[in-house]
Design a protein around this nucleic acid. Structure first.
Lengths: 153, 153
DNA sequence: TTAATCTACATTAAGTCAATAGAGATATAG
DNA sequence: CTATATCTCTATTGACTTAATGTAGATTAA
């Protein structure tokens, strides 16, 4: 049930680009420094995100990356599906990456129905959460960095 | 976000043992045949499940495996955690397998809070679903193999 | 023209996964 | 008591994936 480091880096990078949405492009180096992501690896990832239509780039001096769409139009599910494939824990319950599993009869496999519930729960969250949400959560967390829920007056 | 084939086999095998709960032990060969699981691989898995306290075994002729507890006392989450580790998509939001991630400041990482939601959604389902549920779903599906919800009289 | 940037493709080292191999221990049937 | 079907244990393999690193090139603002 893992999100790869690659996927994690991608979402963190998109958050940075989301913060600067509407402004100028952001250099890879800046994202790398700020988010503690190996620069060369991040190059690959951003290139992949460009191929997926999530970001656009400008080359040359003062080049960089920016979001290709408004942050609230980029659900996390789309990004993760592009980078990693299925959200579903087993391929036989995936909506867009379906593949047969090894059970003798899918129609009678009780595990499938449970895993379908899991898939739906994951998808529900990741379909409705967007890069814009990451940006606003980042802002909120910056305001109240270490205030626990019990610490409200 | 994947459940490994190993984990899938384990849960399918436990379902078979769950069906026979209260009766005699079940041979690996029988489980292997019935569930289309490579026998030698299944041996390893059942051995691992035994180490985890989920099943017990009898050796020798007419040996085999049986559940070590009532099916309704075995939540899927326990099994998966034993075999695969964390349910959480990223280690930094795992309750029992916490590990630091690479983000510069966990307290201010917006991705963490989203992934925590995902973790909780997954855990909620897998903590409340037990081997007994798999057994009863299997029975239900056997009764009504191809009757869709729209097809009820 | 320079230098900072993105682009493209190749390579690598380590790890994981699914499965297989082989030798051994145990217990039941006969 | 012996034959044999089972579980037990450790090791190994081959394919694949992951997270990076290497090298060379294209682009563009200053």
């Amino acid at each position: 049930m893992k999100l790869s480091v690659r996927g994690e880096y991608a979402l963190r990078a998109l958050t940075v680009l989301g913060v600067h949405y509407g402004g100028d492009v952001v250099r890879i180096q800046a994202v790398s420094d700020q988010q503690n992501i190996p620069k060369r690896f991040l190059e690959q990832i951003l290139n992949d995100l460009k191929a997926g239509g999530f970001v656009e780039s400008r080359r040359g001096v003062s080049g960089g990356y920016r979001l290709a769409a408004a942050p609230d139009r980029i659900p996390l599910a789309r990004v993760i599906r592009h980078l990693e494939g299925a959200l579903a824990p087993v391929s036989c319950v995936s909506e867009r990456f379906y593949a047969k599993c090894t059970c003798p009869d899918e129609a009678q496999c009780p595990l499938r129905s449970v895993m379908k519930e899991v898939r739906d729960a994951i998808a529900k969250i990741l379909e409705t959460t967007t890069v814009a949400d990451l940006v606003s959560r980042a802002k909120a967390l910056r305001q109240q960095p270490d205030r626990s829920p019990d610490f409200v007056i």
